[in-house]
Design a binder for these strands. Structure first.
Lengths: 214, 214, 214, 214
DNA sequence: AATGAATGAGGATTCATTCAT
DNA sequence: AATGAATGAATCCTCATTCAT
């Protein structure tokens, strides 16, 4: 569920294999504890007991409660990007990728509700980590949109702003259809969202129907 | 800055004019305290001292820290809806209303950063209040979209989902262009967002150009 | 045992009589706790339970463990100066005052061993408070010596340095003869110290005996 | 800066040359760590990291934090006595030795501020070590004074008490003129202190001037 | 000899809430 | 209505020490 947190300054680098295993235990336990109880309700003792470790061990690897939370948010980012990336990989063009992407994202949230809660809470707990999380997304998104525009797959426009708007769509649909209620058919949501993203709200001239893919 | 919180079960109804003034002081002070420090960093003592009152007085009007927070979120909702409603009122059709609405929303956030922060934090502090806040929006939104579709101003589709998607757009653009940096020209942002909402990302066939308004 | 700590920024000023009583209880209890256990072994819970109060009450009056410790050191200073001042008051000249003063100081330490321990510990716990404690002494001392020199009661010299040297004498004799062992006759110690202070170590010429007062 | 701590029960005796070097590293590092941060702020990890060693290694050589602290205090005693002894060695009589000694002591403190801080802190951390430190001094001092008195170099009196008084003078002058501020000319301080020690405060009859050395 | 991971008791501090005045 | 003193549960974090390698 969690990557190894390596490459981040949030966790202290273990020097032995045993240390690496312990660090992993902590991150996995923290994902559970924070996900279920929320940052403020969660306790370090809760994390360590879930991991079968002692409190002291926690502070061997992290400087503070906030530090492991940040590490978790970063993990989450890697995980999410990998998941979406995987599903989108084969898309023939950007509009298709968007359709697939929205669906995949909501699916992802449904399967990782805790993680989604953690990221959202980062908003107030670690605003910079939250921002970094979304800026990483937005940046990649923007690049994709620009390249697609260059290929003529989408119209021209302000791609950075579009990126943020699209992230907003995914995020709120995630809350509405994955967290608050998850009984609506995902394919339907994806289709509707894809249509909005592709064609907007404007009425369709009957003589010039849009097609998802030529 | 804040309405009087009356009509809600969150605050105790004052019986005298003096009481009404004290309640108002508390709500205004709370908006500052929560907005600047966030729910968990904020303290009741911080609220009362900002209001020039004593701690004991707080509990004359509110049952708990959460109660005043909820009252604040509700206030915020009323305030936001009134603001957006005002700007949209004269729009000749829905697509125009959307364009105007996005711009107005970002403008609103810029002018009420603290309030936006408070609402977002409600996400983890008072999820039901947060949800109620957005569901009220979404419901009105959905109705507007349906009526517009009936009038042929916009295409058919799943209007509830569209409502959530549009709220997501506004919300994230608010964070990006009102809170994190507020130096981008608002008209530009509004125009680009309006275009996305109206036309989506699809390439525009030169022979059948879309127009914002026929 | 303790003054009221008023006039210091270490304690929060109570607004009611009850508050003043509580503050006093805390200071008295702290003098016992710190005196018996030392700063690092002492606990806030130990202080409050001695005072019949709850832990929370402590933090109504003091910001930290260190804050009450500082308040205590200041109290101690006032107390010590008052005690010595009282005994010295009637001395006809400075040399007599010195004799009386050393004796009185050792007597004081014997009767307030805890306080003496607290001041000494301030050395590492609150160096500035420790320094202030002794500088206040040294300053008054220096003034006394200067005035005495002007009156011809003592020889000329560097009075500030003399002040520190005399404080050093008192302090170490206090440790040696009041804390480490307190069975030596105080009058004897005072006499010997007074003689050293008055005449130094130099051999006495038989033909020109010194007299305490001409 | 530190002796090897050998001959004491505080450190475990190393059997190899490498071990001796490690022990030395620990003592030197501890002098820095304790001197800069004070006993309670200092940490074993701080000591070992300064020495480029691991925590575990510390416990190969010392049983506890207190043990190395005591070893340090003993080191300090040897060092101080050696330093003062060296400077005093050639003094023709006791009064001269005293003059030279005070000056030398302040000079020593200026050059070993950390060591002085450590010894002073021993007062509350390891009272017996502190007491032993000064009793060793006092004992030697007393003997010197007695012998000097027998030779007629100084007046008769209670030599033990005098020893403590003289130590007190040196100690407080050290704090005042070596630690708290070290910009006063040392020769001056030494001269003034020497004069006080030799002649006391009593006014000098013009017809029978004392001389430092006949 | 040296290492560094693991431990867990211990304590300061916070602050929402209560209540007597 | 308003006040402010009193409460105490709750929790983060420290760090000396142990031990398996």
């Amino acid at each position: 569920m969690a990557a190894d947190g390596a490459g981040s300054e949030n966790a202290k680098a273990p020097k032995t294999e045993r240390g690496r295993r312990t660090l992993r235990k902590l991150l996995d336990a923290a994902a559970l504890e924070f996900g279920e109880r929320g940052f403020h309700e969660a306790s370090i003792a809760g994390v360590t007991s879930r991991g079968g470790l002692s409190i002291g061990t926690f502070y061997v690897y992290f400087d503070s409660k906030e530090a492991i939370f940040r590490a978790l948010v970063e993990d989450m980012g890697r995980l999410t990007r990998a998941w979406i990336g995987d599903r989108i990989k084969g898309a023939p063009d950007r509009l298709t990728a968007e359709r697939v992407g929205v669906t995949a994202y909501i699916e992802f949230v449904r399967q990782h509700k805790n993680l989604h809660r953690i990221v959202t809470e980062a908003h107030s707990v670690a605003p910079d980590a939250y921002r970094a999380y979304y800026e990483t997304f937005a940046e990649a998104y923007r690049r994709n949109l620009e390249e697609a525009a260059a290929r003529g797959e989408i119209s021209d426009g302000d791609h950075e702003e579009r990126a943020w708007a699209l992230i907003g769509i995914g995020s709120f649909l995630g809350w509405r259809y994955a967290i608050w209620s998850d009984d609506v058919d995902i394919a339907e949501i994806g289709a509707a969202a894809g249509d909005l993203i592709e064609n907007g709200l404007a009425p369709r001239p009957p003589f010039a129907p849009r097609k998802a893919k030529p």
